[in-house]
Amino acid sequence: MNALAQTAPAARIFASPLARRLAKEAGLDLASLAGSGPHGRIVERDVKGALAGGVAKKAPPAQRPVALAEAPSAGTTRKFYEIDSYEEVPHDSMRKAIARRLTESIQTVPHFYLDVDCEIDALLKLREDFNAAAPKRADGAPEWKTSVNDYVVKALALALQRMPEANVTFTPESMLKHKASDIGVAVAIPGGLITPIVRNAQAKTVREISDEIKELAARARERKLKPHEYEGGVSAVSNLGMYGIRSFSAVINPPQSTILAVGKGEPRMIVRNGAPVVATIMSVTLSCDHRAVDGATGAELLAAFKGLIEQPMGLFA
């Protein structure tokens, strides 16, 4: 007979539903009460009498820290491979930090995902015309050259302003409602990934956002960013479209509450006004922290983003 079978079951406490509810709300341990109801059943008057008499309440259980799952040890992993069949490259501090933060995020932040397809033909035409209007510098290079990602950052920032319920950060004690939309932009650098922040992106022009992203990305690759330039923010954009990725889901970077994963724009057959037509479609996926952003709120945020991308003149209003 095993140890579990030898353990005596806990004595059953007989109490009315109302008495149980009152005791639970008051933090009162029913096992400490004597029932005055039929067959010793604990009833409402027993709970109220105990509370009036100052009976000690049951102490709340201690809050235990969330345990994070640990990856298998290096030795455990090495045994699956032949000796001399691989080169072992020690992790630098950046890779260790990325591994730790993403593991904590996926284990402690309840993610959910929403995706939508955006028609971007009007955006591509606007971008083409805007870039064509750039005057030439002395060396013949255009004074500015915006990317689709610059417009995506601006659209997300404005969408968050239109949906302030999503422009938030969760804390255990309260929700932080932000006035500005500070948007992170994922930048691949040797050995890792960093997300510099475009502050007050909703108030900046697309050209200003473009110039700032280029400057931040260049200093990120040189590892010259200061902590305040990549910490914080309310949302982020991760764009893998230039690598041919059609769609994907990104991991939220706390304390941010959302991240928008952007795929490539490509010609696809759609139905418009009952007839098949070809349009340039870009798929995006919004990852949301369910503690801060509910499903309907996330859907409305994504709808606002889609509207701005498909009618891009709104980005200049």
Rank of each mutant, 00 (worst) to 15 (best):
A3T: 14
A3I: 15
L4D: 11
Q6K: 11
T7L: 12
T7H: 07
P9W: 01
P9L: 01
A11F: 02
A11N: 05
I13P: 00
F14V: 13
F14P: 01
A15I: 05
P17E: 06
P17I: 02
L18P: 13
A19L: 03
R20Y: 03
R20L: 02
L22T: 03
L22N: 04
A23K: 00
K24C: 12
E25M: 05
G27T: 06
L28V: 04
L28N: 01
L28C: 02
D29V: 04
D29S: 04
L30T: 00
A31I: 08
S32N: 11
S32A: 13
L33I: 07
A34I: 13
G35K: 05
G35L: 04
S36Q: 11
S36K: 07
G37Q: 02
P38A: 00
H39Q: 10
G40V: 04
R41D: 02
R41G: 06
I42E: 00
V43M: 06
V43I: 13
V43P: 01
E44K: 14
E44D: 15
E44C: 13
D46V: 04
V47C: 04
A50N: 05
L51W: 01
A52V: 08
G53Q: 10
G53C: 09
G54S: 03
V55W: 03
V55F: 04
K57T: 09
A59S: 11
A59W: 01
P60Q: 00
P61L: 09
A62M: 07
Q63R: 11
Q63D: 15
R64A: 15
P65H: 12
P65K: 10
V66R: 08
V66C: 13
V66I: 15
V66A: 15
A67S: 10
A71W: 07
A71S: 10
A71K: 08
P72L: 02
P72K: 01
S73I: 03
A74Y: 10
A74P: 10
G75P: 12
T76G: 14
T76L: 13
F80E: 15
Y81V: 06
E82D: 12
I83N: 12
I83R: 14
D84Y: 08
D84E: 14
Y86E: 09
Y86M: 07
E87R: 06
E87A: 14
E88W: 13
V89H: 09
V89I: 11
P90E: 02
P90K: 03
S93P: 15
S93F: 09
S93C: 10
R95F: 06
R95L: 09
R95T: 02
K96I: 08
K96E: 07
K96V: 08
A97T: 02
